[in-house]
């Protein structure tokens, strides 16, 4: 019998799905193919009674025939029950009724603040990033959220290393645990902030005391040293850090079935996609 292998992007989606609990309300925003597939996967497996708000269309519990390359497409409304409008989604979040969302950034710092706005500062913009869409509000309002990035691995440019996981973001778009304006408690935000960070190199939570990112799980082909080499700040290493639980063959087959265009893999650097894991 030949070996069954999963690819890194599939494990990544599986790990995001593990941050979703049953009987919760979940939403993903723009440019979020990984979370989109993870949410639907969770809805079909361990979170059957979760409310799945299908992306920017705001369809409730859709059965998308496949995942398109935009979050605002009619595919995301197929098989839905109700439709809400996007302003109602934000109302739910303000009332503390949105349990989980998913955000990313070109830079993510040790407290989980994310930059989706600009490299540089206002008036001195080096790179204009796409903008946070609803992230600035929802990172404050939703009860918890998962940070995801398939671009953790540092890029080497000449003799310089460019990090995604940075000590300090150039600009805080989405709020983590400690912001330039104070902590979440001081700001009296509705939600509790990010509780999980899923990257292509590992899975983190946050240290309850310092609120600094803490390494919890590794992939079978990553090490603590790799995490340290590819992270600008020094993450806390959990004493029980270990290799993550692997999905089953059936889990991977389900991910392939629901995302035949592999939309979830689009944001991965191409060379990462060669990483395979025997299941």
């Amino acid at each position: 019998m030949s070996e069954f292998k999963a690819t890194i992007d599939e494990l990544f989606v599986y790990n995001i799905s593990k941050t979703i609990k049953d009987k919760t309300v979940m939403f993903h925003g723009v440019s979020s193919p990984g979370p989109a597939v993870a949410m639907y996967f969770a809805k079909l497996t361990h979170a059957k009674d979760a409310v799945y708000v299908g992306g920017v269309t705001s369809a409730i519990d859709p059965n998308p025939p496949f995942f398109p390359t935009s979050t605002n497409d009619w595919t995301m409304m197929q098989g839905r029950t109700a439709m809400i409008t996007i302003d109602k989604l934000f109302d739910m979040a303000q009332k503390g009724e949105l349990d989980r969302s998913f955000f990313s950034g070109a830079q993510v710092d040790k407290y989980g603040n994310q930059n989706v706005t600009m490299i540089g500062r206002p008036g001195k913009v080096k790179i204009k990033l796409p903008g946070g869409a609803g992230g600035c509000n929802l990172s404050g309002d939703c009860i918890n959220y998962t940070i995801w990035t398939p671009n953790h691995r540092a890029r080497v440019k000449g003799d310089k290393k460019m990090f995604t996981l940075v000590d300090k973001v150039d600009f805080v778009t989405n709020v983590g645990h400690v912001t330039p304006f104070g902590t979440r408690q001081q700001l009296r935000l509705v939600g509790n902030g990010p509780d999980w960070v899923v990257t292509e190199l590992g899975v983190f939570d946050f240290d309850p005391e310092s609120k600094i990112m803490r390494l919890r799980y590794l992939y079978p082909d990553t090490t603590v040293q790799m995490i340290l080499d590819n992270t600008e700040f020094k993450p806390i290493i959990h004493p029980d850090v270990r290799v993550m639980d692997m999905p089953t063959k059936a889990d991977i087959e389900l991910i392939r079935k629901i995302d035949p265009l592999r939309a979830h893999a689009n944001e991965f650097p191409p060379k990462e996609l060669t990483r395979e894991f025997v299941i």
Partner: peptide
Amino acid sequence: IMSAKGSEETLL
């Protein structure tokens, strides 16, 4: 609004 506090988007 209660959210947006903590975000530097308010600086813009």
